[in-house]
Amino acid sequence: MDGNGVLAKEREEEVMIQEQLIAKTRKKEKLSMIIPFFGIIFITVFFAIVTKGNTLSPSNLNNIMNQSFSIIIVAVGAVFVYSHGGMDMSVGAVQGLSSVVVASLILQGAIPGWMVLPVSILVGTVTGFTTGAIHVTIGVPAFVVSLCMRYIATGITRTATSAKDLYIPYNDFSFWNKGMIKLVVLLLVIGIGYIAFKYTRVGKYLKAIGGNKITAGQSGINVKKYTVLAYMILGSTVGLVSFFSLTRTGVVSSSTGQGFELDILTAIVLGGFPLSGGAKSKISSAILGAITVAILTNGLILWGADPNIINGIKGVLFLIIVYLSYERRKGEVVS
């Protein structure tokens, strides 16, 4: 009787310790999910204080909205690439390319107004396809292929705008730049991205490829096909964003889109998204990261930082975040 009592007590203790351990792990997981939120709140408050509230003025909030719009949409597209362990360094250049192609077609009167949006998306998708297809067929790392794609696209944009910047009659498209329309587009992209990533084969397969390419292949996934598809999805979001920024500003210059890929990369890392991809990839991380980048860029400008130095600051920040989230033992970023 006594012996049994002791045993039961020991067992109870065992269960308690086990539960504590599980709770501890859960807490750790939750904490890593909350940190990006704190990041946003921190920089919002920080910039509100140092700019004496300027960052929170209605006109500036509108600015932040506009900047977040582009970064969020492309970050959603980028989730498909980064989740399978890929990388795309051509995002900004492709935005430029897409703008140049569309602007030239408009200026030559070659396409009717309603075709502008589809063509813009098409250019992005085709470049994404090219990057992905070269990557999987000749086996060159996506990082390298996309860098080459960046030089090619930048070259085309510079050539086309070398004589003078291209101006389009942007009043024709003022409909698209109404706040409500953009909000609807943004929510649509997030919604479709979320469902495609979380509840369809596409997202699940890409996460599996990011987790283990060999296992994915042996489990019946056409690794090459889905890899190419990921770059096409990212490309299409770049094309979409290029349409909106072209019709908002009405101009394409040699610097259109410059440095955009680093904003995306920073957004991905700041949101706590694992750069190695895999099971922990989440759309929400990318969106949070995108908003953080937008607020950060905007805040730095209003604070009076030289625009030329902002990229430098972002670079330093990027390094710090990667350092903090790098899990040395596994050689993984953010786990």
Binding site: T200, Y205, A208, G211, T215, S219, A279, K280
Partner: peptide
């Protein structure tokens, strides 16, 4: 080769069966 180690048990078990589980695209 057989497992995705940092994915869940669920993700691993369902991986080859996803086409069967599909209802439309979802």
């Amino acid at each position: 080769e057989a497992l995705i180690l940092n994915a869940s048990i669920k993700d691993n078990i369902t991986l080859p069966s996803l086409p069967i589980l599909e209802n439309g695209f979802i």
